[in-house]
Amino acid sequence: MSAPDLLQPVVSPRARAWRRALRHGGVLFGGAILLAIALVAVFAPLIAPYDPYAQDLSQRLIDPVWGPKGSWAHPLGTDQLGRDYLSRIFYGARISLLIGLSTMCVSGLIGTVMGVAAGYFGGRVDDVVNFVVVTRLSMPVILIALAVVAVAGSSLTVVMAVLGCLLWDRFAVVMRAATRQVRDLEYVTAAEALGMPVRRIVISEILPNVLGALIVVATLEMAHAILLEAALSFLGLGVQPPTPSLGLMVSEGRQVMFFKPWLIAIPGAALFLLVLSINLLGDGLRDVMAPEGRS
């Protein structure tokens, strides 16, 4: 955006979108929860009452504060190895957000490049991208992820890489459609006629105009990645213990869930809240950016 725009007294479309966003319940609510979770995650080392890795076998499976034997020493109790559950939830949120963001970036980059290329050039490029997308969609994600993790060994990096390389399909499809709409607009054809290089057309003309769709897909995929990581960790092939991952905590707690249901209820609820906030934000942003979609 160039400087004169900002100086204009007239309200720009972007500012109008902001104003709508601030009035939108979903955006506010989702944004607030997500912000809170993000703050907890970022400042986990400062606010967590205990080291999430510090085990104490004499303090195992203590009830949370509302339970019969609970106390404020461990507000959410402790797990099977006597680690503070609250601290692990804080750090677990950190891992989830990290996975969500990294997957969003990697898959967003892959998907956007493919989608924009297909949408802009069309023809053969479009055919090839379409083929790759269909191939990717027809591979069962979980099975492929499990197979890759089995080869590469499971670690945080591997999980981030695998999810990043698998979840770009929606980016590609949406970016392709959005780019096709934009590329026939007058100013793009005008830029082409002026002989502007393709790279510059894409960066300065196309991308800013598909940004809205990109953000919406990005939030959805972030939520998707967080859920998939949790599922992989639940199956034992995601993030490795003792790293606190919310999915792993559900998996570790489920053996005693009939006797200590909070062991699965708490991390599951945390995961639910995190994904819910991201989805609310994403949905809200979609409404804000395309108000006509929601009459």
Binding site: Y53, Q55, L57, P242
Partner: peptide
């Protein structure tokens, strides 16, 4: 036996 392994990791730490 991942829980045992985790406990061993905790002791080594």
């Amino acid at each position: 036996d991942r829980p045992y392994a985790e406990a061993i990791i905790g002791d080594l730490a």
